[in-house]
Design a protein around this nucleic acid. Structure first.
Lengths: 333, 333
DNA sequence: ACTTGGCACTCGGGACAAAAGAGTGCCAAG
DNA sequence: CTTGGCACTCTTTTGTCCCGAGTGCCAAGT
């Protein structure tokens, strides 16, 4: 059927609106859209598209603007992820290559992504769950306070302070280190809970309490609070669309301060190389219902960008995918 | 001389403007300012104050607004840090008490400070330089890659990855750990460079290269890149004064993304219990010339808030001081 | 059955003018 | 030195008008 052209009209509207930030009228669509039809024809299609809820007009004598539903159709059926130029790929590569550190990789990635897309960028620190324990360290800070340090194979270090109910000798500390070390060395973090849960029962009585405390901390820090962190960059880019968000900016900034919220934004898609797009109200996060999020998984965590629903989806999807791939490679082996 | 009343007029103007965000006229000063004089009298004083550059009028028929110089005089001579209520002190205390972790202390402090002042809050992670080395760990990630971990007495952990030019045996790793450990244990971080710089010369030849590499990393991470980090919260509060910053918001957000800039903001004052206020152009940081910063040192780093020059200085100074004190106590022993 | 040009209609926004208000500076008197 | 009065200056508000953009609908064309 002639749906074909209607979709082209929608595409033209989306692209036009993204470009100009102004409602786009039938004439503009007819001319810029490369369809060989007159404005009047376009108007008919637009009426139909509006009927079905893909576009709206802000007021009677204005052009049309895509709705969330319209953008959704656009990304699902009308947009192709536009491949990045060679120059861009090289830029990404060289920019990330200089990283000296796990933290540095993450820091550089967010900044890069923010710069590339001119949106707010979010990058999650590699999640621990698939990492292996490389080393366990128990250090006495005082006689009743231990510092427990887990070092993983990806160069990540987790630390926890443990307060003890009874004081401890240096020898005991060494013992604990040994016990925990042999129990954990080489296990993947997901398997750690199983590996440690029985430990207290099998050790010398006078260490039992202390070991229980340590084990509890290990379990807590790994299971209950996976301590997933994210890094943010490019909030200044929100002001570019300050025209869009006149006073909607505040709730957005507020939402972005919550780590939990950010994690939820990146959360859902665990399949690498799948790009997730959440448009407007599809984000059931308070304050972000006028924004869209494009995210992807790099294998050990997520990366994404956030901006107004009126964003250049193809470009942002491309950038997110590219960065996710590079980060994945960088942190993979 | 009658300077006395002029200062009262200035105070009334500052307080009025902070309160209402609108230029304040002679009538308002006369009424709200509790001085027993007529508007006409006030006008004379205002003319004088304007003459001397403490206030300006945005346009001919508007009230007066304080200049940076006016605010400066205000904080120097007219404002007393208003003590926090008992309830507030208790709130601070209980809020910070729940911290489980060094990182957690910092996180809670920023949030608290942002909430208390309704400004942007900045808290620096405790600087390493006065900390003592509690433990040194060397872990082999691969045969040519080591992870070096320094654990300090305040529960802070510094880590660095070191790539080696030649592969290493497990025994060697243990040796290295021992050598570094005995050299560093107990030294204050500032003294570490001296403690390690001679090490390579005194050890067995076949470890010399590797040890040099490690030492180089230690030196670099401690001296050249002190890796001072800061945490930020409350950026959303900037939008409250979006009326002040119509489009000045963008450069501010941009500036706040630079760690270096934030460090400079907290930087100068190393004396605990001294509150530093930098007003408007006194911040020689690009983009922050329309903002003021109130900061203090808690002993191992700085805390502060940033907001429009039109801010409630006494209240913010009180909050910053209170938080700095609590954080200092919390991290002190 | 679509497409198209024509046409009347709606509305937002810019231009302009007049009026209202706020606040000042200055002066002359207390 | 203070104060009330007053003229003056600007900004802000309000109101009106008009233009242009864009639409919807219709009747004619293919």
């Amino acid at each position: 059927m002639l749906e074909e052209r209607r979709l082209d009209v929608l595409r033209a509207i989306v692209e036009g609106f993204v470009l100009t930030n102004e409602p786009v009228g039938s004439r503009a669509v007819a001319e810029r859209g490369q369809l060989g039809v007159s404005p009047a024809t376009v108007r008919n299609d637009m009426a139909a598209l509006e009927e079905e809820g893909y576009i709206v007009q802000p007021h009677t004598s204005a052009g049309r603007v895509p709705t969330d539903k319209g953008y959704r159709l656009f990304v699902d059926r009308l947009s192709t992820v536009k491949p990045m130029s060679v120059a861009e790929r090289r830029a990404i590569e060289t920019f990330l290559e200089g990283a000296i550190d796990l933290d540095d990789v993450v820091r550089r990635s967010v900044r890069l992504l923010a710069q590339l897309t001119r949106q707010v960028a979010v990058v999650q620190y590699p999640t621990l769950s698939r990492a292996e324990v490389r080393h366990v360290e128990v250090v006495a800070m005082t006689s009743t306070r231990l510092l427990l340090v887990l070092i993983t194979d990806r160069g990540r270090v987790e630390q926890r302070v443990v307060d003890l109910s009874e004081p401890l000798e240096d020898d005991d500390v060494a013992d604990l280190r040994l016990i925990l070390g042999s129990a954990l060395h080489g296990s993947r973090l997901v398997d750690v809970p199983a590996a440690v849960s029985e430990l207290p029962d099998t050790c010398r009585p006078h260490l039992r309490n202390t070991l229980s405390a340590l084990v509890a901390v290990v379990l807590e820090s790994l299971v209950e609070r996976p301590e997933e962190r994210v890094l943010l960059a490019g909030t200044a880019n929100l002001t570019r669309s300050t025209l869009d968000f006149p006073h909607t900016l505040r709730p957005v900034l507020e939402a972005l301060e919550e780590q939990v919220v950010l994690l939820r934004l990146l959360g859902s898609s665990n399949e690498p190389d799948l790009i997730t797009v959440r448009i407007g109200a599809e984000n059931d996060v308070e304050g972000l219902q006028t924004t869209s999020v494009v995210s992807a998984d790099y294998g050990f965590g997520g990366v994404g960008v956030l901006g107004p629903t009126r964003m250049d989806y193809p470009a942002n999807m491309a950038a997110v995918r590219a960065v996710a791939r590079y980060v994945g490679e960088l942190l993979g082996p």
